[in-house]
Each structure stands twice: as C-alpha cells, then as structure tokens.
C-alpha cells in the first residue's frame, strides 16, 4: 500500500493463512495474495455457468448456465467498478464508468458466445462485438486513436480474413438439423478448460486489482499533461500553429519549450524581429493521436521498423503456406521426364 494513495479495499477473503515469522512467531508484514470476495464469488459463479453452457446438456441446462454465468459476470464487473465501495470526489458514479460497465457486459457476454457458439461464423461475429466493446473501453480510457485503429484493423481486416477462411474451409455438415459439425457441437474437456480459465482469471485479476491501489490520479494527470506538452515540442507544425494562435506572425525558436506546473511557455521571434516569450493556451495541448505518434516515432523507432519486417515475413509465410501443392501421378511424372529429356536432346 503506497502512502497517500487513498485506496484500500474493504473486503478481502484470504485464501492462505497469514505467514508467520519463523523467529518471533508473529505475523510478518508482507501480506499474502488475497482474492477480493467479488472476484472469488463472481468467478466461481461465472465458471459454473460457463461449464453448464459448454456441457450442452440441453435447452434448459443451457439457459440455466447462461443465467448463472451472467450473474457471476455482473458480480465481477460491479466489484471491479467499485459499486460496493465508498467513492471519493464529488461524483462517484461518472458517465465514463457507466459506459465502461456497459462495454464490460458486452465484451464478457460476447466472449462467452465466441467460445460457446456451435457455428464458427457466429463465433466470428460475436468476436466483432467484443472488439467494438473493447473500443468503447479504449475511448473511456482516453485512447482515441487506438479505439478507431482497432475497429479498422480487427473488425475490418482480421475478421474478414477469418470469414474468408471459414467460407473456404466450411464443409457440408453431416447433421443438417443444427447446421454445425460434430466437433463444433461438443467441447473437448470443458471441465479442465473452465478450471484453468478460472484459476488464471483469479490470479491475474487479483494482482491487477491490487495494482490499482498505488494509483494516484492527481499526480498521474500532471505527468500525463507534462508529457503531452513535451510532445508538442517535437511537432514543428503544431508548435507553429499554437504560437500563431497567441501571437500572429511570430515564429517559435527550436528547443525553447518550457513546461512548468502552472504554465507552458516558449521563446519566439515576433513579426517585427524582436524576441519574446509567449504562454501557450490550454487549447493547444496536443491530442491523443499526436502524442501517440510522437511516442511511436521518437521512443520506439527500431520497433517500428521491426513491426514492418514482421508483417512482410507474415505475408511471405502465408503465401508459401497456402500455396496449392499439385499432386503428380506416376504417368504424368514419366511424361514430364520424357519431355524434359526430349527438350534437352
């Protein structure tokens, strides 16, 4: 627990007894990992429901499983949103939180449908729902550029590729009643799969849950603003426009951007040739796309090149893999052999 973070959660269900100090017998200061009660209860309910869905025991079992899983998922999401916890600030329940809750319900339900739908095409379409819900979450987290990039790349490109392959490889199913193949209708080892998923969820979510305890919104907001202003210094055109909006005709001097807690100023050469300092207005703070672009190009130039190489390699690999191999019979082989020898003679 970081001092001054102002975050401590009420209800923790210990899964291990607190460790004892070997020498004195007292409780040691390092606390064991505790699973928050919302995650434990919600995860168990959700796993039970998911298991019932995957077992495909019939219509009623399926419905019951869905209801139980929905209940568990809601418990997890409500716990994550801190609905049972006291909230600080003037408005505890904000509009972004409402949007994020809706997106969470959408993505969890979509993900369950992806893994439980007997038709692969439906699974792909529900994956689009998960992607769209993810974009809503990205928007609430202030990642506008990625939200739209994700829709374009995932829903627009990757999912279409999946659809193409599904159509190429979809076979006439033996069972015409449900329209799905046998291996799509019956899950393989659903109990083991759900158990692995539950354990993984509890461990990841517990660690992440505790990680938020060290979050300090005020300091983080200041850091984020300062980083955005520094990114403006890397954008010549943006800097010129920002200066132009305050002092028409002035040109900024390179490398003179000064970011302090209160205000942002830089040296300029004014229209009449004299030098001076201007204070930039709040409206010229760079937006998400600009700052992400600067971070991408300035901090990770080599990774950017490598990403291009990965794409090129994947393209070549896909072409090599998917190339149709021609089967040649013995007669054709002999004919080809004779032809090549005839050509040589």
């Amino acid at each position: 627990m970081v001092k001054g973070s102002g975050l401590r959660y009420r209800t923790y269900a210990p899964i291990l007894p607190p460790p004892r100090c070997p020498r004195t017998g007292g409780t040691v200061l390092v606390t064991p990992p505790m699973v928050p009660i919302e995650l434990l209860a919600g995860g168990a309910l959700g796993a039970a429901g998911l298991l019932l869905i995957l077992l495909r025991g019939g219509h009623t079992v399926h419905r019951t499983g869905g209801a139980i899983a929905a209940l568990g998922g809601l418990a997890i999401l409500a716990g994550g949103a801190g609905l049972g916890a006291p909230t600080a600030g003037e408005s505890g329940f904000s509009f972004p939180l409402l949007v994020a809750l809706l997106a969470g319900v959408m993505s969890a339900a979509g993900a369950v449908r992806v893994i439980s739908s007997p038709r692969p095409v439906l699974a792909a379409i529900f994956f689009v729902l998960v992607v769209v819900a993810g974009c809503m979450l990205y928007l609430t987290l202030g990642a506008e550029f990625l939200a739209f990039a994700l829709v374009i790349v995932y829903a627009g490109a990757i999912l279409i590729t999946y659809m193409f392959v599904l159509m190429l490889a979809q076979q006439a199913s033996g069972d015409s009643k449900s329209g799905a193949a046998e291996y799509d209708r019956n899950a393989r080892d659903p109990i083991a799969a759900v158990f692995v998923g539950l354990v993984l969820f509890l461990s990841i979510a517990t660690i992440m849950w505790k990680a938020v305890d060290s979050f300090d919104p005020a300091t983080t907001g200041q850091i984020q603003r300062a980083r955005a202003w520094i990114a403006l210094g890397e954008l010549p055109k943006g800097l010129r426009e920002a200066v132009e909006s305050v002092e028409p005709g002035a040109t900024p001097e390179a490398g003179t951007l000064h970011v302090s807690a209160g205000e942002v100023s830089l040296q300029v050469t004014k229209a009449d040739g004299s030098r001076g300092s201007v204070t930039l207005p709040e409206s010229s703070l760079p937006h998400n796309t600009q700052t992400v672009g600067v971070a991408l190009v300035k901090q990770f130039p080599v990774s950017l090149e490598l990403a291009g190489v990965i794409l090129l390699m994947a393209m070549l690999g896909a072409v090599v893999l998917a190339r149709r191999q021609i089967e040649i019979g013995d007669a054709q082989k002999a004919e080809l052999h004779a032809r090549s020898h005839g050509g040589a003679a």
């Binding site: 975050l7 801190g82 600030g89 972004p96 994020a100 993505s107 993984l200």
Partner: peptide, 24 residues
C-alpha cells in the same frame, strides 16, 4: 476506510475485463 476515485474505478474495471477476456 478510504475511498475509490472515479478514475481508479474505471481503470480497475478495465483491468478486470482484460483478465476476464484473457481467461475466457
């Protein structure tokens, strides 16, 4: 007993959804 700010709740919700997606 201290309280949860709206931003912290948002981030925690997003992280829980991320864990949920990964394990599903």
């Amino acid at each position: 007993m201290s309280a949860l700010t709206a931003d912290a709740a948002l981030i925690r919700l997003a992280l829980v959804i991320a864990a949920l997606l990964f394990s599903i």
